[in-house]
Structures are given as structure tokens and as C-alpha cells.
Amino acid sequence: MTMHSIPLRRFLVSAVALLALAGCNRKAPAPKLPPQTVSVITLHPQAVTIHTSLPGRTDAFEIAQVRPQVTGVIQKRLFTEGADVKAGQQLYQIDPSRYQAAYDTARGQLAEAEAAEVTARAKLERYRSLVKAHAVSSQEYDDALAAEKQAQGQILSAKGQVESAEVNLGYTKMYAPISGRISRTLITVGALVTANQTDNTAIVTRLDPIYVDVNLPAITLLRLKREMAQGRIERQPNGEVPVTLTLEDGSTYEHVGRMALSEVNVDTSTASVVVRAIMPNPDKMLLPGMYVHAQLEEGSDPNSLLVPQQAVSHNTHGDAQVWVIKPDDTAELRQIQIGQAVGDNWLVTGGLKDGERVVTVGVQKVKPGAKVKPEEATTPPAASSPDAASQNKGQ
């Protein structure tokens, strides 16, 4: 063995040892994870009845303030406080003696005027034949004619006085101007009332039916008009909008009313429009000023898409978003537009279409572009029952 072969052998042994050591340090490749399993629902159009729930207050359908129209002392009170009264029912009796006397005087003046007219007419008839025979002058005939006309005028004036006195005499009986429930009396027997006084003697309020006034946001009104123009919202066959009420204690009012009108101007301070509903109130359960929640049944959308609320999240800007599973089972985070809450679901107004799959359970496992193993949820989203109210949400 030569001296040059020894370093070469050592070099080869070292190289082999280094290669063996490198082979020992090499790790086996990590096993590939299977796709994550997520629950999805497949969206399909369905008919949904759209409701809007808004706070409001009740208001009287009719209200009349009972005030005297003549001056006098109250002789009688002819009603029970808090009872129902009918239109035309007498409520008070004012002392009629002075007005009866004025009426009798006016009738006497009328009788005198009628008697004077009889004399004047007879004289005119006599002068009419005499003036033709030139037995009286034309001036005397003209005076007789004028006297007869004056007598007729006095009769008309006397009749007016009789009618005025009769009206004032009738005003001594104070009647209920409308049917309804009367308040407590604000005067007592023996009290002096005056004509055209500003204080009421009582108030009559009609309770059946009763108004409910609610403030509808202008943006909701625009949405309704837009969806109706697009044919998405179908009105009731009779064109009316049914209204149901939830009372302040949480109970549901048993009678169904209808929307009567909406204001033509938007309140600039609240950006809302006053909507008035008419509710039947045969049991007088609703009283003016009560706080209620009114549910307006806007109509039916026959092609609605519903997505469960649990599937919807919001980004930092507050925009709604969902995870959508593409046909190749990869995930996509998509921004959508939602409308009202319908039961446990959101009404989708944009961003999704029929047949798309949305993740409902397992969203924390999903990453953009990652493959997943979708499993159809057993209970697809369903519209709420007709009596379930929903709150408006911004578009």
C-alpha cells in the first residue's frame, strides 16, 4: 500500500459515514389530513309571508269635548261617569227659565207682526181698487204697498227671533255628540257654566274601533315599494294589509285589524312615516295611549331564499357573510345581503342563488379554498309561522 492511498481511503470512509448519518436524519413526509366534515344546507326558493313588527300607541277613533253653548246653572246630570253613552243622549240640563221666557217673548212678537201684516194687506187690497177709480192718490197706494212689505219683513225678523230663542232653549239640554265612553264629570249640579267656555264639562271617547299609530322607517317603505314593483311581494287579494297586535304584557290581541293610511311626509327628525291601523275593539280592552307592538303583514314573497342565522357572520364593516361550498367541494367566504329575520333565519336579498350550499355547522374548520366534506343538514330552513313577528334589518 502506497502512502498516497491512505488519505484516499480515509476520505472515502468519511464520505460514507456522512452519507449514512444524513440518511438517518431525514424525516418521513407528514401524512395528508382528510377533508374536514361540515354541515351544509342547500338553498331553494320558498314562499315566505313577510311581517314587520313596529312599536306604536293607540289613539281614539273619535273624541268629543262636551261644552255648554249657553250660560246658566246646571240643574241635572243625567249620566253615569265612565259609562257608555249614545249619540243624542242627554247629559246635562241647564236652567231653561230665562231661555223659555225669551222664546215666549219672541213668539209674541211674531204674533204681533203677523197681525200687523194682516191689517196692512187688507188696506193694500182696498187701495188697489180705489186707485183705479181715482178715489185715492197714487201716493197713498204706494204708502199702503210699502206698509204691507214692511209688515212682511217684520214677520221674517220675528220668525228669526223665535228660531234663535228656540235654539238657545234647546241648548239648555246638553247631548252627547257621539257614541262612546264618557269621562268623569268636571262640573257638579249647581255650577254656573258659560257659553263658549274653554273648560270641558265631560269628554266622550269612541273606543270601537280604535286607531294604532306606528312609525315605519322610510327605508322600509322604500324596500316595500321596490319589492312590490318587482313582483316579489304579493298583496292580499282584497288589497288590505292585515295588522295584529302584541300588548304590553306580551299577550297577543285576539282581533285582527287593517292598515288604513300612511302619511305622505317623512318626519325629518326620525326618518320615518306614520302608519295608522284600525283595530276592532268590541270589548273595550284597548284604551287610548296604550303602548303596543303592531305586526304588519306586508305580503308573500313566493321566491324567498332563507339562510339560518347561525350560518351568518359579519365582517369588521358589519357586512353579512357566509361560507359557500362550491361544486368541487372547496370553500368560499362570500358577502351577502340580508333583510328581515324570519324565525331563526335571515331573508336573503342578494349574494346567493338557488341550489347553492351554505355551511351551517363547522365554520371554524373552514378556510378559503380548502376542500371539505359537506354533509346535508337534516332540517332545512323554513319560514316562520304566520303569527311570528319579525324585525326590520338594514339592507
Rank of each mutant, 00 (worst) to 15 (best):
N215F: 02
V48I: 13
I233Q: 07
E148T: 01
P242H: 09
A383E: 15
K284T: 13
Q90R: 15
L186D: 06
H317F: 08
V189I: 14
Y92A: 03
I94R: 06
T360F: 00
F11E: 01
M1V: 13
P386C: 04
Q90F: 06
L347I: 07
Y92T: 10
E140R: 12
L19A: 13
P374L: 13
L306T: 05
V358H: 08
K86Q: 14
A388G: 01
E112T: 12
A47T: 08
I278G: 05
L169Y: 02
Y253F: 03
V292Y: 05
S251V: 10
V307D: 08
Q310K: 14
L224P: 05
S137C: 02
D199Q: 13
P68V: 01
T71Y: 08
G394M: 10
Y99S: 02
T37E: 13
F79L: 00
A101Q: 14
E112G: 04
Q109E: 15
L145F: 04
H134F: 07
D95T: 11
G318R: 14
V266C: 11
D319P: 02
R128I: 07
Q236W: 06
V307F: 04
P177I: 09
V38L: 05
L18S: 12
V85S: 06
P29R: 11
L305G: 02
G351A: 09
Y291K: 07
D354I: 10
L19Y: 07
P308I: 03
T105M: 03
V70G: 06
P280Y: 10
A277S: 14
D354C: 01
V358K: 10
A144S: 12
S183N: 08
D213N: 13
V212I: 11
I203S: 04
G88Y: 07
Q337T: 09
R128K: 12
M285I: 10
T270Y: 06
L216T: 08
P302C: 04
M259K: 08
